[in-house]
Amino acid sequence: MNTLIGMIPSILMIVSPILITAVGGMICEKSGVVNIALEGLMGVGAFAAAATHVLLEATGLGMPSIWISLGIGALIGAAFSAIHALASINLNADQTISGTGINLLADGVTIFAAQILFSADRTREFKMGMQTDSLGIYPTAYIALVVVVAAWFILYKLPFGMHLRACGEHPHAADSVGINVKKIRYIAVLSSGLLAGLAGGCIVLTQTIQYTSNTINGRGFIALAAVSFGRWRPIGVTFAAFLFGTAQAFAIIANNFPALRVLPTEVFNILPYVITLIALVVFSGKNYAPRASGKPYIKGAS
């Protein structure tokens, strides 16, 4: 039991970035744009945060450097997601193709930039990552909590959130009552980029000491799974992120449990994906996804 309680901080460390990204993906789909670029957006955010932190740390800035880096990571994530916004909102592009392109592009851009800045296929190592509080919990857990609560409040308690959800359910109806569908979808896509970039920064500053091409390792796709498994609702997405994050954590810490040591650690890596697949089959028929999700909005066309 004590070991289980002792594990809570590391589980929170792994869950937080997945949850932050999943909330971003949820907001984006709620507005009617599917974002499978989350993985790539986390990557650029993580790289930007790691690179900024390494460079600022060298100037002797100290702790503020962490927070500035997180901010930069988030901003770069948002900037990168503008490509997806332009393609899927203004140009009626296929959102899956655009997302795939951004994922491929992010792979190249991050390591290319590392080659230019640090002459290696990874960023230089930084000395001090984010520090835990007296309970051993990283601040990222509190950030995630704030993000979830804020997203729930905005989406379900403010007029803006209702407008956003209307754009994802029935953009023509939303348009007819004077809601600016394009503007709202832009805000949603850019916030998903912002949150994914922030989450990337959280991963790199808490779980490792440098950015490599393996830093994100599918966690953007886990977040995407959490959105479907959580049925596009804040509480469901939170639950899903916890479930998947805990499974990920077990892949790393299963060695502490003699009973679990007989299983290959990969079993825990597989869990989130298999659970999502099963859930999608079990809940099929009832469609929880926003109805207009993934479809470009063409004014006037019915």
Binding site: A87, L91, N92, A93, S98, G101, I111
Partner: peptide, 25 residues
């Protein structure tokens, strides 16, 4: 020349293909 430029070119090609819907517009 960082070899990752080839990944960038491949990624750009896919992004541009997504943007080609602009041609129809």
């Amino acid at each position: 020349i960082p070899k990752e430029i080839t990944f960038i070119i491949q990624g750009l090609i896919v992004v541009f293909i997504a943007l080609r819907s602009a041609i129809a517009l």
